[in-house]
Design a protein around this nucleic acid. Sequence first.
DNA 1: CGCGAGCTTGAACATTATCAAGGCAAGTGG
DNA 2: CCACTTGCCTTGATAATGTTCAAGCTCGCG
Lengths: 239, 239
Amino acid sequence: MKCNYCTGECSHNLCMHKVPIFSSLSQEEMSHISSIIKHNNYQKGEILFSEGDSLRSLIIINEGRVKGFKITPEGREQILHVFSEGDFFGERNLFGGQKSAYTAEALETTKTCIFTKEDFYKILFAHPGIAVKIIETLEERIARMESTMQSMGVRSLDGRIGGLLLDFADKYGEPAPEGILIRLPLSREGIANFLGVARETVSRKLGQLETEGIIRPVGNKNILLLDGEALKAMSGKDT
Amino acid sequence: MKCNYCTGECSHNLCMHKVPIFSSLSQEEMSHISSIIKHNNYQKGEILFSEGDSLRSLIIINEGRVKGFKITPEGREQILHVFSEGDFFGERNLFGGQKSAYTAEALETTKTCIFTKEDFYKILFAHPGIAVKIIETLEERIARMESTMQSMGVRSLDGRIGGLLLDFADKYGEPAPEGILIRLPLSREGIANFLGVARETVSRKLGQLETEGIIRPVGNKNILLLDGEALKAMSGKDT
DNA sequence: CGCGAGCTTGAACATTATCAAGGCAAGTGG
DNA sequence: CCACTTGCCTTGATAATGTTCAAGCTCGCG
């Protein structure tokens, strides 16, 4: 990849340019900030941080996907977030001084960019426009969570799964000839842990949706969404 | 109530001083801002705004409580937020330029303070510290939503209800001789609509929790929490 | 004191969880 | 290149749990 903002080799993997937060900055400013960013890579299954850790840094995903989850008293994972390219997290620790509320684990090979709290504050005060961008980003996340909560609250499981598929389609979908191809970030078990139901039930319901001609599984990690309208009708996301 | 920041009668009902957002401002600045705030009062059941409205203002609750909800395809209300004194909302419309994702309805007599988008932007740029406060507040809301999502995801209903009671205790609880007295913002039906279950089920489970000596209903709108630890064990909120 | 909204309780029904067995696919080692 | 192994997904039968519909009760208000 070619990097327009750096001279010579682009050592920071372009993360600056993927994050809307920094979109208001000039080239020079970006270059400066780039120089203080650190990097970290993770394999699938690796833990970025655990619930209760007081990490003192902001993490931006440059490539890959990460799930944030807690362990329920039943011993099950409750997935709270699925972060992907361009998302940032850990910010709660920066602003609130709180400890991490969840554990973050890489779902695939993931590359991250890291700011220390100190560096980030410096940047924030030097470029107030960034604060507004952060607010906008947080609003987006809140909107996504509201959408998830709505999905979770729907009584019928079809509706719950449908809502989740729509969320995924929105975030991870790519147009395809016959519909939208969704590259699933989670396994069946992961989906079950997101919705708080049993693995087997997810299988059954997906099978049912396939029978109804609404979706078509493509391998195990992709789903072709044929009839989004049907899902919207089930899940109530007509808006 | 006496208002330290205003000369003479305090016409703006103190809302400025209840909102952490403005805590970094001086007396003079507050007085200035106070002068551009508008007010609105609502009776129980009144709608503040509806899903899809593009309201152009920020609303701060000065007194009372408000629920934010959507209608599911089954025709049920899915409650997404319960806002109370000091909370603000409508901000999504200000920053994202989006339409409202939910309907807001007063749960009791409610007094609000209102900024227009223009006024608020002026204030924001004049006092950058406010942006950081807003970020912190949004982080808190995200944390609350994460907590709610966790509650919703717990498989056992006891755990779900327990988690919700803990959330309420945290936000609306007052210490009492025997435990924590929770002034419920929602009816049984409201609780059911929050968790996405049937009214009757909520009744049954609350009855069960009472039998187990964990809670004691005080009238219909209050609950005395006797054994918070038991709830934490059920819901997984030991943190 | 009486009325009505909201809450509780009961019994039959529907859905999902659980337990158990079998299949498919990707990766490994001969 | 093929059999083997491992992890993940599907399917089936049974038991547990929640929903629904219906009836009766209680609290709070006029």
